[in-house]
Nucleic acid binder design. Structure first.
Length: 355
DNA sequence: ACCTGTCAAGTCTGG
DNA sequence: CCAGACTTGACAGGT
């Protein structure tokens, strides 16, 4: 293996997988939060703090928040049923399922009292159909921050996401993906601070994390080093890598990135579990000028080039599509890929590449 | 029914 | 030091 690819050698588990898959790469695709095909199915409906305060009856206002949250959970279940019908097994949950959950106006509100049942139902459906569900707390979750107040809020927001997983009955295989954060003029100090902060987190939060390279600050290589230091899996974003790297090639980092997922599978004693297959993000630049912004759809070629290059030493890959047109972009990409030589479609959103 | 402005968050840049 | 850009989907309020 290592002679063949020039990559570092791999575990015996890895060799077994390769033998079993006969050098075929199985790729599954998914999309983020909302479907553009389903109507009136937003999982992210909300209420502004201003509106909440404007309502004279606070109890009634809270009931309204709970109705919005229940509706978001119901819409998420509708989306999962749709995903099941379309055979899409990768899906990122909305971070806005429960509006104003961490707002200081609602510090005394326990939203779970009213939402326990729908959350459990959602998690059960997800487990039953083997969906790979994830969260991506937004970019205001910054553990590299030097500010204590920002750190507190970041931990609070991560806690909120992990609690949702727990209330859904979804164990540590279900992950919250985050970025490292800002540099504040000193990248080394910032990543050191990040590492120390993550090490100080309660284990139930720390072990939910995956780390993703970002488009401005921490490159894939730097994120991989940080993931190694913390023993966390890494999600490689190919678009971010394309606009933020120091000359290194994603394919050359891949063996080590893949290894972070094998390590996690070993840690959780879930060696063959597809929930812990290595995962990447793909998206395409909106335009020449707006290289970082996401386009409506995803171009085939950059993904195809990467997938072909890693196929000889990768049995399985999960791909999250980050495109404005969400599931429509997924279907378009599947169609574009299905006409390519050496690729056969397994089902709605999974395919097999032979090498 | 549609359109425009606003809302949240934290970081970073430009003035 | 402060204002504005960045990002995102959806609300809020106007026509």
């Amino acid at each position: 293996m290592s002679e063949r690819t020039g990559q570092p050698s791999h575990t015996s588990l890895y060799e077994e997988n390769i033998a079993k898959e006969k050098f075929a790469l199985i790729v599954r695709f998914g999309y983020v939060a909302m479907s553009v095909h389903l109507t009136n199915a937003s999982p992210s409906q909300t209420m502004t703090a201003t509106q909440f305060q404007r309502l004279p009856d606070r109890e009634a206002a809270i009931r309204k928040l709970e109705r919005i949250a229940a509706d978001n959970l119901h819409n998420t279940l509708r989306i999962l049923r749709y995903n099941q019908a379309e055979q899409i097994f990768l899906y990122r949950l909305s971070s806005k399922l429960i509006p104003l959950q961490t707002h200081e106006l609602l510090a005394d509100w326990d939203p779970y009292a009213a939402l326990e049942q729908p959350l459990r139902e959602l998690g059960e459906y997800g487990r039953q159909h083997r969906f790979r569900l994830s969260f991506h707390p937004d970019h205001f979750t910054v553990f590299s921050t030097p500010r204590q107040d920002v750190l507190m809020k970041s931990q609070q927001d991560l806690e909120r996401h992990v609690s949702l997983f727990e209330r859904m009955g979804l164990d540590e295989r279900y992950k919250c993906n985050i970025h490292i954060g800002g540099t504040y003029g000193d990248k080394v100090a910032a990543s050191d601070r990040f590492i120390q902060r993550i090490l100080q987190l309660p284990e139930r939060l720390r072990m939910r994390l995956t780390l993703e390279n970002d488009d401005k600050t921490f490159t894939a290589k730097e994120t991989l080093d940080t993931a190694h230091a913390l023993g966390l899996p890494m999600v490689l974003d190919l678009h971010h890598h394309a606009v933020n790297h120091q000359g290194e090639h994603a394919v050359d980092l891949w063996a080590d990135i893949q290894q972070t997922w094998s390590n996690e599978a070993v840690r959780l004693n879930q060696l063959e579990d597809e929930l812990l297959a290595p995962k990447i993000h793909i998206s395409s630049p909106k335009s020449e000028k707006e290289k970082r912004a996401h386009a409506d759809y995803v171009e085939v070629d950059p993904f195809l080039e990467f997938a072909r290059a890693i196929a000889p030493f990768t049995p399985r890959l999960d791909v999250m599509i980050e495109a404005k047109r969400k599931d429509a972009a997924l279907f378009q990409l599947m169609q574009d890929l299905s006409t390519v030589d050496g690729i056969s479609r397994i089902n709605g959103a999974a395919l097999e590449m032979f090498s």
